[in-house]
Design a binder for these strands. Structure first.
Lengths: 292, 292
DNA sequence: TTTCTTAAATCGGTTTTATCGATTGATGTT
DNA sequence: AACATCAATCGATAAAACCGATTTAAGAAA
């Protein structure tokens, strides 16, 4: 039993005339006759009564019609549904994002949703490590974060923008007056750093290791807004990309040195089918960067 | 898109391994790979992500799965339904019957329904003419009546039994004492006959025409039980097959002469598919005749 | 009746395609 | 580095869908 035969049967039932049905199906009457017969053989019961040159549905044909129709319709509807998905009139988009990129995400996301209101978007905040893991397990479609220390062969990286690594302090702190600071001065200050797993923390760990410096870590915390609140209180300092601090009212003084810069990236999986929604959203993000 | 491809996709989705799925489907891995690819091409979207040697469903595959499953299931269920029909665990049986054969019908019908309780039976009483018309238009599956004067080429006739044509009278009537009567004596009596359209009436018309006799018709009526009541009252006589009178308490004296006999028949349409239910019911009827 | 028309079934041959085995390429494992 | 595993690809083959022509049968028309 094949959909082709069901389609033939449906048309023959509707026209009750093999010759016309065959015309309508763009096949020969011979073919239609054979395919119907084959279907009847498989079902082990005639679907049509051949009365002279007329055909009429048997009870079996009458009963089977609804099943045939529904089977064909389910398949057709599945195809239509996928067409909608291709035109972004359906489907979902799962975005992973680190806190530092929220200011870029929100306007791009708003424009995307206005254009494709049928797409269900889920945004997941988390550490780079956690989000990268979820991207690799296909839980996420796209990841917005800072560049990793090591690249993963299964991932594709696309640069969004660069942001200098900064010493972050209360706006009233004397350090805020400086144009730039040295890394060795930074490690002397009491620091509140993001926990391991955050991309900037991994970057800091790596940089300090290379410079043989060890930081004065007062506190580690896995929530960036809370971390910023603590710094705002004035007792502690932290190290973050300039973008991350934007809009918080805190001071961010660039740290002097080569490579003292974070690269914001769009990360997706290599060689997996890229949803239309991902492609579109990527464009919105790149466009958002250009606007600034 | 064909059911075959949907079946392949479903299995591949369930096992998430083309090699195993192909084994389970008794096809080569090569074939499965090609058919899935063909399906994806037609749907214009990948159903699987090929990550290295692993495969995983795409969003499209996930969404399409339910449609594929339902399409295949509808077709399978249709086939199963027809199997039940073939085993008389479903379906309908429409029986046309003339009043004269009710005594044979009821016991056969009761046995049939006990054996095939799932079959929906409809019994239609009527004149032979009316019932034959409904049989020809496929409204009836089988017809139980007396032999027609002329046979229809589209109908198949099978003898059930023969019953002598009788002069019917009240049991107290002097005529009831006779062993037989002559046709010319019958036409002298005041008769109540079934209306035209009843097979016995057609037979009587024909017989009298051939014998150049004209009857003394007091009343024509199209309801046999009422006709019998009138005869029972004693003022009138009628002509019917002996079987028709059985159990009514009336006297039935055979009419002398060649061919003064009615043939009870099973009539079906020639060359139309005979339902399993019809075949079975026919057997029950013939069996019922043998029992007597 | 006979003829004519129409519709479905059948037949033989052709084209299409589903399928296979073998091979390749790529990946993860020992 | 060698090996095992899995999906993709290739070329060949077998299966099937399909067509045109013909046959068969039934209504319709002459």
């Amino acid at each position: 039993m094949e959909l082709r035969q069901l389609r033939y049967f449906i048309k023959a039932k509707e026209l009750l005339n093999f010759t016309e049905a065959a015309d309508s199906l763009n096949i020969s009457q011979s073919t239609l006759s054979q395919q119907i017969k084959q279907l009847e053989d498989e079902l082990d019961i005639p679907l049509f009564n051949r009365i002279g040159k007329r055909i009429a549905l048997t009870e079996a044909g009458q009963l089977f019609y609804n099943y045939a129709l529904q089977s064909v319709n389910r398949a057709n509807n599945g195809k239509l549904m996928l067409q909608e998905l291709n035109q972004l009139q359906a489907g979902s988009l799962n975005i992973g994002v680190t806190y530092g990129l929220r200011y870029l995400l929100t306007p791009a996301l708003m424009r995307f949703l206005r254009k494709f209101p049928k797409v269900k978007v889920q945004v997941v905040f988390g550490t780079s490590e956690e989000l990268r893991h979820r991207l690799l397990s296909l839980e996420l479609d796209i990841l917005l974060t800072f560049e990793e220390v090591v690249h993963d062969a299964h991932l594709t990286y696309e640069l969004l923008f660069e942001s200098p690594l900064c010493l972050v302090s209360s706006a009233k702190d004397p350090v805020a007056q400086h144009d730039q600071v040295l890394l060795k001065d930074v490690v002397a200050l009491p620091l509140v750093l993001p926990s391991n797993g955050f991309s900037t923390r991994e970057f800091i760990n790596n940089t300090l290791l290379q410079n043989k410096l060890s930081p004065n870590i007062a506190l580690e915390i896995n929530d960036i807004p809370t971390l910023l609140d603590l710094v705002k209180a004035g007792n502690w300092y932290t190290i973050l990309a300039k973008t991350t601090v934007k809009g918080s009212g805190l001071s961010a003084v660039p740290i002097k040195g080569k490579n003292m810069v974070r690269k914001a990236m769009i990360i997706t999986m290599t060689d997996v089918y890229e949803k239309k929604a991902v492609g579109q959203f990527r464009k919105f993000m790149l466009d958002e960067v250009k606007r600034r």
